[in-house]
Design a protein around this nucleic acid. Structure first.
Lengths: 213, 213
DNA sequence: GTCTATAGGGTGATAGAC
DNA sequence: GTCTATCACCCTATAGAC
C-alpha cells in the first residue's frame, strides 16, 4: 500500500520544496523580477535541480500562477456557486469574511494577480477557464443583486460599480498596506491585521448603507 | 533671449523623447520587466543615446519615478493643503473628482506605484519627502475627519479605514480594469471610462452614506 | 549628438560526474 | 537525484568612428 513511486509524504519532498519556494518568490516579486537562483536558494537546493524537476522558469511560474489564481477566485466562486439560494446579504457577509481571511494568510496575492493582469509573466489568458470560474460567481451573485433591485429593496446600481466597490474595499488595503500604514502612522503589523479583521464586519455594513434607499 | 544652451522647446528634443518613452514603458511594465531597448525603440532613437543622456537605466527610472509619484500625490496634496478650511464634504468631492480625472489620464499610474511599493526598481524610500508630502494631506484631511466626528456629525471611524476606503474606491477599479470588464461583460473602453466618470459623483455619496449616523 | 560595434556581467538552461 | 562547471543568450553600458 505504501509502495509505488510517490513518496510517503512524510517530509517535504524536494519537488515540493522547490514549488513552495517558487510560490514565495514569484508571489513576492512577480515574474520578471524573480530569479531562478533566488528560488533555488530559498528552497535550499541547487539551481540545476529546478530545471530537472520543472523544465523552465516559465513552466514553474505557470504552475504557481494557476494555483494562485485558484486561491484567489476558485474556492470562493465554488462556495458561492454551491449556495446559490443563500440570502443576498449573507452571501455578501460570507464573501467579505472569507476573502479577508484568505488575504490575511496570503497578503501578497493581490500584487501577484495585479502583476499578471498587467501583462506579467507566463502567457496569461484572462479568459482562462480558471478566471472564468468567476463567471459562476458573477452569475449567481449579480443575479442576486439584480433581484434585490427589482424587488425595490436597494438603490439601483450598475453591477460593475457594485462588484468594483466590493473588491476594492476588500482587496485594496492589502495592496496599499505600506502606504496606508505610514499615512496613518501605524507601525505595528499586528495593528494592521486587527484592523483588517474589523473590516470583515464593517465592509458588509458599509455596502449595505451604500445600497440603502 | 532665445540664446543659451537650452533649446527653444519648439519640437520635442531627443532628451524629452527618451524621457517620454521611458515614462511610458516603465509605467506600463515596471522596472524589472522594462528593457532599455524597448525604451530606445519607443523613442525612435539608438540605445546608446539613452546612456548618453541619462547615465543608466536606474537613474532614468528614478527620474520617471519621482515625476510619477509627484503626479500621484503631489498636486493633490498641495491643493488640499492650500485649502485647509474648505468644508469637509467639499474636500471629499474635490479629491474624488480630481483623482479620477488624473487616473483617466494616466490609468497605469496605480500599477506603477504599487509595483515600487512592493519593492520595485530604484531604491525607493517610502518615507521619501515626496511620499510624505502626503503628510500634508493627512494632516489637513484627517484633521477634518476628526473634527466631524467630535462634533458628532458622522459615525465614528478609524482614520485608516476612512483613508483606505476612499483610496480603494477611487484607485482600485483602474488596477482591476481588465478583470472587472470581463466579469461584468463590458468590452468597450468608452463604457468603462464613462462608468469611471460616474464614480466622481457616486463615491462621495457612497462615503457619505457610510458615515451617516 | 548620433551612430555601430562590442565589452562586461548576469540569467536561464544543460552536460556530465557522482 | 543531486551536484559542479559551463554554455548560450540577453541586457546594460561604453568605446570610438563620424
Amino acid at each position: 500500500m505504501a509502495k509505488g513511486k510517490t513518496k510517503p509524504a512524510k517530509e517535504a519532498t524536494t519537488e515540493e520544496k522547490i514549488k513552495a519556494a517558487a510560490r514565495k518568490i514569484f508571489t513576492q516579486k512577480g515574474y520578471a523580477a524573480a530569479r531562478t537562483r533566488d528560488i533555488a536558494e530559498e528552497a535550499g537546493i541547487n539551481l540545476a535541480l529546478l530545471n530537472y524537476y520543472f523544465r523552465s522558469k516559465e513552466r514553474l511560474f505557470e504552475l504557481v500562477m494557476k494555483e494562485n489564481i485558484q486561491l484567489f477566485v476558485g474556492n470562493l466562486a465554488e462556495n458561492i456557486g454551491n449556495n446559490p439560494h443563500r440570502p443576498f446579504i449573507e452571501q455578501l457577509e460570507y464573501i467579505c469574511s472569507s476573502y479577508v481571511d484568505m488575504l490575511l494568510e496570503y497578503p501578497n496575492l493581490p500584487f501577484f494577480i495585479m502583476n499578471i493582469i498587467q501583462s506579467g509573466g507566463g502567457n496569461v489568458d484572462i479568459n482562462d477557464p480558471l478566471f472564468s470560474s468567476v463567471a459562476k460567481l458573477r452569475g449567481v451573485f449579480i443575479y442576486g443583486l439584480k433581484e434585490e433591485m427589482e424587488k425595490g429593496r436597494i438603490k439601483p446600481i450598475h453591477p460593475l460599480h457594485f462588484i468594483a466597490n466590493m473588491m476594492s474595499l476588500i482587496i485594496f488595503p492589502f495592496i496599499a498596506k505600506p502606504l496606508l500604514m505610514t499615512r496613518v502612522g501605524i507601525t505595528d503589523n499586528k495593528e494592521f491585521e486587527s484592523l483588517m479583521q474589523e473590516r470583515k464586519k464593517l465592509i458588509p455594513e458599509w455596502i449595505r448603507s451604500m445600497l440603502k434607499k
